[in-house]
Design a protein around this nucleic acid. Structure first.
Length: 260
DNA sequence: GACACGTGGGT
DNA sequence: TACCCAAGTGT
């Protein structure tokens, strides 16, 4: 049962995977770079940034040596800017504390800034072929639908449940392919809206498809609420030129970027 | 454990 | 239009 799941999935992946640059390497630096960029970010949006970073900083040492302003500028437009700051800090830490080599152990990877459970598992499996399952939004969706698991995925404790299900399914000798395949299926077939069940290699046994519950799974209770905030800036303008100065001030314990 | 963090695409 | 997300993590 678990074997047919993995076999079908991995076989489908071999024949249908997209050709993406970070899939043609086992360099942990490039794997890490791609994973940070792809956090909460679509492939099409992150791809040009990945290429820029690899080109500008071929090795972790290059990134570690770069000025933070330069790294931030390269990241400009991608969003979630704390990722860029953590990226730089992580690179410096790998150089200083790990002799410029990424650690292999999952628990050691977890100590790196910006590397959480998902990214640590991704590096451990893609770069080092360890059988640690990745659990991201795609994996939640595929497993919730296939096994009809209706736990609320917005609750942190649910992560462990899905991690354990995936751990049962992941083959020791095809860990990287399995993890990649789970995410690829979620990204291209088992999508949030209108999943393409006709072309899904797992559709025959999928509980959600059998019971027509695709739109009800996975269950996510937490809703995103957007609050408006209004900030005021003073900008000096003389003819066509703007006068701006970057300063960082602490206001009630929080760092603000003040443009003067 | 709840919440903030960003931009861009889909319905 | 107004949501709903998308290869999560830090606080």
């Amino acid at each position: 049962m678990t074997q047919s799941f993995s076999n079908s999935l991995i076989n489908w992946y071999k024949n249908n995977k997209r050709d993406l640059p970070w899939r043609n390497t086992t360099d942990p630096y490039k794997i890490w770079l791609s994973e940070i960029i792809l956090q909460q970010t679509r492939v099409n949006q992150g791809l040009p940034y990945y290429n820029k970073f690899v080109s500008q900083y071929p090795k972790v040492l290059d990134l570690a040596k770069a000025p933070e302003d330069e790294v931030m500028r390269l990241w400009q437009g991608l969003g979630y800017y704390s990722r860029a700051r953590n990226l730089h800090e992580c690179a410096k830490s790998v150089v200083k504390d790990y002799n410029s080599e990424f650690p292999k152990a999952y628990n050691e990877l977890l100590k790196l800034k910006g590397v959480g459970k998902y990214t640590a598992a991704a590096i451990a499996s893609f770069a080092f072929e360890q059988a640690v399952p990745v659990v991201d939004g795609n994996v939640f969706r595929v497993l919730a639908r296939y096994f009809d698991v209706s736990d609320d995925i917005s609750q942190p404790k649910t992560f462990t449940k899905f991690f354990n299900i995936a751990k049962e399914l992941i083959p020791d000798d095809y860990a990287a392919s399995f993890n990649q395949a789970m995410m690829e299926l979620g990204a291209t077939i088992c999508t949030p809206k209108k999943p393409d069940c006709e072309n899904c290699p797992l559709s025959q046994e999928c509980e959600a498809r059998i019971h027509h519950k695709q739109s009800e799974l996975p269950v996510k209770m937490k809703k995103i609420k957007i609050k408006n905030r209004y900030l005021y800036y003073l900008i000096w303008q003389h003819e066509e030129k703007l006068a701006m100065k970057k300063e960082v001030q602490k206001i009630s314990g929080r760092a603000y970027l003040i443009l003067i």
